[in-house]
Design a protein around this nucleic acid. Structure first.
Lengths: 193, 193
DNA sequence: TATCGAATAAAATATAAATACGGTCGAAAT
DNA sequence: ATTTCGACCGTATTTATATTTTATTCGATA
């Protein structure tokens, strides 16, 4: 097992600890124990605890973005894509929330890479929605005047669903809440003669 | 100044303290000081601190509902009403958030009337949106299949705007974010031939 | 190069003393 | 009779301090 493999292994173990017990209660000794090496050996692979945490967050964020992208790639129509996106995003967020649960403002100030990863997810979300909407326009299914602002609005609508959807484990295709919100976003409420 | 007047005065002072420093840092001695009476005299008008808090929350919630309703009554068209509602609701919420800022779960358990007032606001919001949408349907401006679920969706969309709108003091009519979200809710993004 | 155990420094936690605060009561003032 | 008050009590909160836990360093070793 070479250096890189071991680094990955440590990150995996640390991620397990953090998602289960949080950042504070995860100790270097605990990680070392699971990895079957002395505590001090960890410092051969990482500069410090913060460094491991950063690696964990980066790895998980990356995996989650991949998962979301894979899910929306499975369907073809833009409407289905939007539905799949919301579904994947919510379950993804639920997993990530374990990492962020203990997060205070001072914590965010101290470990700025957390902010950075969040910012990255925000950009990913904007790009993905933008991508889906553009595809819908090209296919002649959507008609959008101001693409940027419409993206923003849809993202805001998705964020409004968070409190309800994040509580439930998963919601099947055809979930009435998501379904209804999408219907609203697609058709609007104005009467067309 | 009779008994009732003094009660109102105390509630007003307490509300001022709570909105500025929060519930915990508001002391009976502080309120008494501003009201120019001894701490113990407060207990002649209210049973305990919790009682004052309850009176403050009730008063403010009532005032805010009145303010919101007054604002949407000033305009006539359902689209304007929805716009006015969001505007009024957000500024209202900003004031109220000062009361709720320090709120933890255990706090909510202890002071159940806070939950109660929140529930009341939720009902008020549902009714108001319902009212506006129904009016729009009658006037032939809106066309809504499932009224209840559409209400829910619009409320969720409004909640998604909170994080952005609550930060700013006030947003003029024609604010691009609100304007754009409303446009989306009204017209949707589906192409109509 | 990779691993370790022991030593150190910093942070978290537990303990004890001091203070602040909500609430009570009986007396005084109006 | 109604309203105000100061003194008092017990508990919750804060502060100060001791103790333990934990992150990190370092020299030795295989």
């Amino acid at each position: 097992m070479d250096r890189d493999e071991k680094r990955k292994r440590i990150v995996e173990i640390a991620g397990n600890f953090i998602s289960r017990f949080g950042w504070q209660k995860t100790t270097m000794e605990g990680i070392a124990g699971k990895a079957k090496m002395a505590k001090s050996s960890l410092y051969y692979y990482f500069q410090n605890k913060e460094d491991i945490y950063q690696a964990v967050i980066e790895r998980d964020s990356r995996m989650l973005r991949q998962k979301v992208w894979a899910d929306i790639s499975e369907v073809t129509s833009p409407t289905d894509k939007l539905s799949a996106y919301i579904n994947a995003r919510m379950t993804a967020l639920q997993r990530l929330s374990n990492y962020y649960s203990t997060l205070t403002d001072e914590f965010l100030d101290k470990y700025s890479f957390v902010r950075y990863e969040r910012e990255k997810f925000k950009l990913f979300e904007e790009n993905t929605i933008h991508h889906i909407l553009t595809e819908g326009c090209i296919k002649g299914i959507f008609k959008i005047e101001n693409m940027q602002k419409t993206c923003d609005s849809i993202i805001m609508a998705i964020k409004g669903m968070e409190p309800i959807l994040v509580l439930r484990k998963n919601f099947p295709r055809g979930d009435s809440i998501v379904e209804n919100m999408l219907n609203l976003l697609f058709n609007g409420i104005r009467y067309k003669k």
